[in-house]
């Protein structure tokens, strides 16, 4: 079984490897512009304080990890189940169904981790310097890993529950709110005076990735404690992992 699983994973790596430039453009263009405009440009023009880029950077790494994982998962799944049927050959391999889904989750997470790692050199290039703390490395890796897995499982859920004809509207309705309620551009505890938005943000798993990254990289900025972030992410993983597997089973077997 391990050999089959490895081959399915190798297929995804080979296919992505052939299109590395497209992959990087797809995942990095948006965070690079975010960094440049909000972290660099607005600060240099005096509209934001110089500390803002330190607050924004961990948030953008979090956003890149989660959103990359969601996209790497949901788009191909919708297309493969609904249109090209490409996945059928893997569903007919002598692998348990959950292993086919798990391979997809693993691969989407690897893509997401790669994309978030590339954010660090890019951050240095755009901002000049980025916040980094060796003591926070363990938490940083843990949060990035869980955040990528949660993103992949959200993608698995979207990709298996949304029909191919509704994918455009589903992405519009899901992505924009996810993008702006994930505490990416603001620290969550500072929302105390805007209670309703704080509650909305608390429901977005990306919030715990952003806040966890801040706990690891810039602990002087008010943040949700790291252990709460890890716990919330583990809970989200269990929730979306279960939902995604249910969706995958539904699509794979009539």
């Amino acid at each position: 079984m391990l050999r089959s699983f490895g081959s399915v994973l190798r297929r995804d790596i080979v296919v992505t490897g052939k299109d590395l430039v497209a992959f990087l453009a797809q995942v990095l263009l948006q965070p690079v512009f975010f960094l440049f405009v909000f972290g660099k440009l607005l600060t240099s023009l005096g509209y934001t304080s110089s500390g803002y880029s330190n607050l924004l950077f961990p948030g953008l790494v979090a956003l890149t990890a989660t959103v990359t994982a969601i996209q790497a998962m949901a788009f191909p799944l919708v297309v493969e189940f609904g249109w090209t049927k490409e996945i059928e050959d893997r569903l007919l391999a002598p692998l348990p169904l959950w292993a086919v889904a798990a391979e997809k989750v693993l691969f989407a997470s690897l893509r997401a981790l790669a994309a978030s790692a590339v954010m660090f050199p890019i951050g240095i290039g755009v901002l000049g310097s980025i916040p980094y703390r060796a003591a926070g490395l363990g938490l940083l890796v843990g949060v990035a890993l869980l955040g990528s897995l949660v993103g992949a499982c959200i993608g698995l859920t979207i990709g298996t529950f949304v029909p191919v004809t509704k994918i455009n509207i589903a992405f519009a309705l899901i992505f924009t709110p996810l993008l702006f309620t994930g505490a990416t551009q603001y620290p969550w505890p500072s929302l105390a005076h805007l209670r309703w938005f704080q509650v909305v943000s608390a429901a977005n798993p990306i919030t715990y990735v952003s806040e966890g990254m801040r706990a690891a990289l810039v602990p002087n900025i008010p943040h949700i404690p790291g252990w709460i972030c890890l716990l919330a992410l583990a809970g989200s993983l269990a929730l979306f992992g279960t939902l995604g597997m249910i969706g995958f089973r539904r699509r794979a077997i009539d």
């Binding site: 050999r3 089959s4 081959s7 190798r10 297929r11 490409e86 050959d89 002598p94 692998l95």
Partner: peptide
């Protein structure tokens, strides 16, 4: 569709060990 004809055959066999 992301694989060549030969790769389609080779990967299928690899999935089957």
């Amino acid at each position: 569709r992301s694989l060549s004809v030969r790769q389609n055959l080779l990967f299928h066999a690899a999935y089957h060990g």
